[in-house]
Amino acid sequence: MTTSENQKDPEKNMQTPSVVSSLGSVAKTQSAPKSPGSQALGVGLEARGVHAWFGDRLVLEDMSLDFWSGTVTALIGPSGCGKSTFIRTLNRMHEFIPGAAMAGSVLLNGQDVYAPGTDVTKIRLKIGMVFQKPNPFPSMTISENVLAGLKLAQIKVENKDDLLQECLERAGLWNEVKDRLGAYGGSLSGGQQQRLCIARSLAVRPEVLLMDEPCSALDPGSTLKIEETISHLSSTMTIIIVTHNMQQAARVSDYTAFFLSDGGPGKMVEVGPTGEIFSRPKDKRTENYVTGRFG
């Protein structure tokens, strides 16, 4: 699958990256998982030879990975192996860290998000993000929080109430908050706050949703709710989830990628359909990790 076949929005005149061709060979060597027929909506997001540095330290080496539309991909691996750094390169949040650098390219619908002249705010509109710690905006009410993205990105919508209800329903929070939409976001429990953050990401209608350990600060009940939310969402968008919880990866994801760092930069050891990664991993290190023998 080449980048040109995949351009869904040719009218968005982003420049076709020149760097792709030089790294194309790298991309081909990494065999992408075959998408199940029912969900074959094409590759939504592709990482091509992504490297990341903090200062002089290389923390992520040669990451090439395809994320198929309508699927959930889980990134697993021990702490410090570059999972979070990797997903932050996907929506260009990596560059906020002082001293950060990267190489390679990230293709959204075939267009490089790092191409010169790209409007980075448009990229982040299409690639939403849910953070490890629930971070609703403290000065805003629940409904203001959900609609905050529209205000931030200056998007006009016809019917805000419908959008508000739709996003909260998709995030599985509507029934719990419908009577107190005017309460402050901080008045919710941790699990509700995280679902509020998911609803907030959905309001700008992203094509891809990045989730950086979204359940690590939550209790099992809230975790279950968020996992249900993920399965509901996955039919319409590409979801990439970083998790330390292997049962969670097994429960929610279609594909799993295992990252590992041997003291140096993090690398991808193996990627494949989740069932295979957990039952018949090709690499010994993956087997050790998923069976809990280390890490």
Partner: peptide, 13 residues
């Protein structure tokens, strides 16, 4: 910093 990141990640300048 979470709040700044959340704002920018939502597509705000």
């Amino acid at each position: 910093n979470d709040l700044r990141e959340a704002g920018v990640a939502l597509g705000g300048t």
